[in-house]
Amino acid sequence: MNILILDGFPENSSSKLQALLLEAQADPGVEYISLAKTAIKHCKGCFSCWLITPGECVIQDAGNDVARKYINSDAVILLTPVTFGGYSSVLKKALDRMIPNICGLFTEYQGETHHVRRYPKYPALVILGVQNTADKEGAEIFYELARRNSLNLYPTAMASHVFSEATEMEQLRSGLKSALAQAGVSL
């Protein structure tokens, strides 16, 4: 199983969950990308990836490599501090560059308008958020965002979980395991 881990923690912060996922790096099927240390330019909203160079972003940087790795993975794990209920800007700069992987055309999907899929198969998606202080409302928004993403990014399976940084390591480990299992992913 090819697993891509996209770590969206800013450089000056860390999490126990991050440490747990870093352990998985030893597995040859796992690639861990620390986005804070990766120079990725922001999506300019030019729509070239839909209209001029379909499927490819015109910005030639690591953002392109991440999008390429994304679509060729069996599972992608997104890791982020829960930021105003959503993702950190560090994770989002990579996620904004994923739109070449879907097609600009509109279609009806699950009763709503969405973009047409570009590829026959997309990776399973595991979206993990970490809260330093428990915030129920923030967690609810996070789950909602993960669900919205799963409608637009066509993952074969999806799981999301909000962890509290205060959780003990062993409890965190089993929580991570069950979140991964929910999307059919094992590390």
Binding site: T53, P54, A67, R68, P100, F106
Partner: peptide
């Protein structure tokens, strides 16, 4: 809206696109 936008998308890609609208350049 869907009819018009999808029509415009297809037309723009046919005219200016460097690959088909459903190209899969990142797939190994």
């Amino acid at each position: 809206y869907l009819l018009v936008l999808n029509g415009v998308f297809r037309r723009v890609v046919r005219k200016h696109g460097k690959a088909p609208i459903d190209a899969q350049p990142y797939f190994h």
